[in-house]
Design a protein around this nucleic acid. Structure first.
Lengths: 340, 340
DNA sequence: AATCCGATTGACAACGATACCAATTGAATG
DNA sequence: CATTCAATTGGTATCGTTGTCAATCGGATT
């Protein structure tokens, strides 16, 4: 315990408007106005105040400001998890945009649990954020009402197939799955398998799988088999699962994965096992992560705009006051690697 | 614009303690006490209040609470960037611990810029967080004083070689570099090169390189060459730079990389170029990322405890009131892959 | 020089929750 | 049944900032 300097109760008492006002010889409200760059301030006043503020190294207390204003420069950001690179990229995008406007994220992780999400959102809303960004379109019942009480803009990210509470930005996961199916069919694959993980979290991956299956059926080449392993997605899991799936269904000539981590594992397995990719086995991932583009055979994948999604979400939030609620479809792209 | 329901100025006025108190027929302070689980509350009172609170779906306004209390359940978290997986993992660890105690992160990204960091920290501190977690041990001058004004605990992460403001948790980067040098030397490599990126951000990577160089010199096998490319770390950059470095210095038999992304690129390049790894070329990364363990030749690396670092940082923060400031050395491990 | 008007500045009362201290209750005691 | 003391409950002021409205200033006008 280094802090011997303060006896209990003898707080150093943060410097406030009042201190600055006294030193500058002006009223508190004037200091407040200068700090906020309010209009109609004389240069003389501004200079006096700024000088006093600097010598005291005064920082406005936003908590008090937010209380008075009923709103803050905080944005509630609710994501399922930080373990998934996808959400790190999204958060990066969100921050890049928010920071330009002096806003900050307060983070809440739902861990893919709806009850937990409710709890987290309740806590974040108690900070009177100026807006909220949340993941997906499905949430427990009380949430829309809670948000409505604060009358703040909402942006839901990742998915746009459904009914958003406010704005939404994302991609059509079913269209992406269809594009993947068409791509693989176009490459001549006819015995296609699917690999997912971790009980299909995020739930959007299930939508993709279903759309993928449906499309293949329609094309007359129904899915041969699909495996959803219990553990979390990882290259290691992808490698093992690929081996298992091929052992059980040797006729499979192509695998579509729930994400690139799994697909990379599949690719590594194929390399170790000397399987001819893309000749004897096609591999296709989802997301288009950076590292997949550096492998000896670049990984074919669906390129999703993760950073941009976050960025656009923040933009929608900021524009909501003037533009109202909107739905933005950021399109995906089929990344033509060399694995399918 | 969907929200036609509210004329300008006719705010739905958030439900407050007062509303609950009125409905329950008790005083505001009693409601406050029930909501906070204060001691000495009769069951009858508690029941009345809870019922009223539920029917009004009341949520306490933490902004007001924080103002009165001079502290909040927010933790300021200052990281350089979200683009780097390392910090995503650290943040994941931080959140995992904070969430168990009902705390939330307010995020600030410095983008590796000290002025920006100062600015961001100033803004975060204006929210009266109950603590602050920041990255590295070097910060612009006013920061320690600003934090001292609030009298909140500080934890600095990543590095422990230097003088922390409060607590610190991380690894010894110079020891890690020495371990890497010793490992490579022990494997018989004698013509060793180094590859870094992006002007050696984070700055800790420079410390590693210098310690690595010094150790090799001491072992009598001075570094053959080192390249720091301008662009950000990525596997693509690692592949290209590896090719360049080997072209210029064909005698190099081993490369130590600033991080695993670069090293993976090097490995992929070697695979494409049919270079015998680890026979003709040893490769060693830094961090021990998941995907490096799934490649046909698992990537040798220094395994760093990123998630644990975040978790421990949060623990130190929570314990600071009782335990004071501490420095925790989370040790790294040499991950024995098959590339060096 | 008196008047007027916009540009500045200030006084005061909130925002919602909580610490502090006072008031009330009720059960236990003699 | 009066008294005492702990357990509950309530009243009031306050955290630091800002919206509202009133007061003041200073130059331009006649």
């Amino acid at each position: 315990m280094n802090d011997e300097h303060s006896f209990k109760g003898e707080k150093p008492n943060r410097t406030t408007l009042r201190h600055v006002a006294n030193l500058a010889g002006v009223s508190e409200i004037s200091v407040s106005r200068v700090m906020r760059n309010a209009p109609n301030i004389s240069d003389k006043l501004r200079r006096k105040v700024m000088e006093a503020a600097n010598t005291l190294s005064y920082t406005p207390n936003r908590v008090a400001g937010a209380l008075k204003n009923q709103s803050s420069n905080l944005v509630a950001v609710v994501l399922p998890s930080m373990s998934n690179d996808v959400f790190a990229a999204v958060l990066d995008g969100i921050e890049s945009e928010l920071n330009e406007h002096g806003l900050h994220s307060v983070l809440g992780l739902s861990q893919y649990d709806h009850d937990r999400e409710l709890q987290v959102i309740r806590e974040l809303l108690s900070w009177s954020p100026m807006g909220i960004i949340m993941t997906g379109l499905h949430h427990s019942a009380p949430i829309p009402e809670m948000i409505a009480q604060l009358d703040i803009p909402v942006v839901q990210i990742m998915d746009i197939e459904g009914t958003p509470i406010g704005s939404a930005v994302g991609i059509s996961h079913s269209k992406a799955a269809i594009a993947a199916a068409d791509h693989l069919y176009g490459k001549g694959y006819r015995k296609i398998g699917y690999i997912g993980a971790w009980n299909e979290r995020p739930e959007r991956s299930r939508a993709r799988r279903l759309a993928f299956e449906a499309r293949l059926a329609k094309l007359g080449v129904p899915l041969v088999a699909s495996v959803i392993v219990d553990e979390r997605s990882s290259a290691v899991a992808g490698a093992r699962t690929t081996a298992d799936l091929l052992a059980e269904h040797p006729q499979i000539d192509c695998i579509f994965y729930a994400n690139d981590d799994l697909a990379m594992g599949g690719l590594f397995y194929a390399m170790s096992a000397n399987i001819d990719v893309p000749g004897d086995l096609g591999l296709m991932g989802f997301n288009g992560i950076e590292i997949g583009k550096a492998t000896p055979l670049p990984l074919s994948s669906i390129q999703t705009p993760r950073f941009e999604m976050g960025q656009e979400a923040a933009k929608l939030l900021l524009a909501a006051r003037t533009d109202g609620h909107r739905v933005v479809d950021l399109s995906f792209q089929v990344f033509e690697g060399k694995t399918a």
